[in-house]
Amino acid sequence: MSIQHFRVALIPFFAAFCLPVFAHPETLVKVKDAEDQLGARVGYIELDLNSGKILESFRPEERFPMMSTFKVLLCGAVLSRVDAGQEQLGRRIHYSQNDLVEYSPVTEKHLTDGMTVRELCSAAITMSDNTAANLLLTTIGGPKELTAFLHNMGDHVTRLDRWEPELNEAIPNDERDTTMPAAMATTLRKLLTGELLTLASRQQLIDWMEADKVAGPLLRSALPAGWFIADKSGAGERGSRGIIAALGPDGKPSRIVVIYTTGSQATMDERNRQIAEIGASLIKHW
């Protein structure tokens, strides 16, 4: 067993022997301040990774656009098919120029040779490549099948209805392509620590998230040296922004954090800054 596999296998073990965790309302004060600064709703939840206990939450059962955070769930569904012998990570998928959609920095470079399922998941999570996500959605049967996968996990809230990039439209009061912070946090925890996926697939999923290259201005910008984070960000229309993450000190994750916002007129930089400040408060009061 590799060191990384050992780390993920012992996530519940280490967490069980940690000192009790206590909620700190100071972080919620910052979440509410972010709402004021952005002029928009902000949803927040913080779960203990081992027990699933909610440590703090704000608007945990209000719907927010998922945006690209759905790509972690998508690759979880792909990995479940791999575990069941219905898919192979090494299978190569070929596609054409007509398949390319807006923001496809990886797939646009491989029109000639195609990409493997493993490479597509890596591109979808680490670079948020939209064509990679659409190609992977095709392998599982489309958005409705991802929703069905989530329902089978016990998540009857999260739903995907459309493809990239239309799913980022974020129309107010439109339930399409949305989740709730509580539902997303619980589902992410199941994917990373539950028995739904094999140990190898859980490790692969967290490795992809740990290698995320496009979430630097968010929670990662607030992390002290030595902290662990595996995350996936999302951005959408109407001032929408979000991030889902597993993080913790001492090089291992111990909490799940989900943050979503929508309806702001603020710039992307300002949305990023507010999420980073929430992260800084979380870490300060850990």
Rank of each mutant, 00 (worst) to 15 (best):
R63D: 03
F149H: 07
T27C: 08
M180S: 15
A133H: 01
M184K: 01
L219D: 04
L111Y: 10
H285A: 09
A215V: 04
E270V: 12
L247M: 15
G142K: 04
G242P: 00
S221I: 11
M209V: 01
L192I: 15
A200S: 15
H110G: 08
L55P: 02
A222G: 11
S104G: 06
H24E: 12
Q265H: 15
K32H: 12
L100D: 02
W163A: 10
A183E: 11
S233T: 14
L73Y: 06
S240T: 07
L55A: 06
D129P: 00
I283G: 04
M1G: 00
P60K: 14
R176M: 10
A246G: 06
L137A: 06
G141F: 04
A123L: 03
Q97V: 15
R238F: 14
A23W: 03
A182W: 13
L218V: 04
I243Y: 06
R63F: 06
T186E: 15
R118P: 04
R189I: 07
S240V: 02
M66L: 12
G279F: 05
L196Q: 15
M268F: 11
G114R: 03
Q265K: 15
G234A: 09
A211P: 04
D99H: 09
M66W: 01
S254T: 14
G216D: 08
V42E: 00
E87P: 02
L55Y: 12
F64Q: 02
R162H: 10
L79C: 04
V117I: 13
A133C: 05
P12N: 12
P12A: 13
T261Q: 07
E277T: 13
R59K: 09
A123D: 02
S264K: 05
N130R: 00
G263A: 08
T187M: 08
P249D: 07
L150E: 02
L19N: 15
F6D: 05
A34S: 13
P217I: 06
S128K: 00
T262C: 10
R238E: 08
D207E: 14
R7D: 07
V8N: 14
E270Y: 08
N130Q: 04
A222F: 08
V257I: 11
I229M: 08
S68P: 00
T158G: 05
L38Q: 06
S51T: 14
N173L: 15
P224W: 03
A266T: 12
A16D: 03
V42L: 13
R220I: 03
V78M: 09
L150C: 12
G263T: 05
N134P: 00
M209Q: 02
Q37F: 14
E169H: 11
G154H: 06
D33E: 12
T158Y: 01
A215D: 02
R238A: 09
W227V: 02
S281Y: 15
G76F: 04
G142D: 06
L120Q: 02
Y44H: 03
I125E: 01
G43D: 00
L47S: 06
D174K: 03
A124C: 08
L120I: 06
G236D: 04
R7S: 09
F13Y: 11
T179I: 01
D33F: 03
F149S: 07
T116F: 04
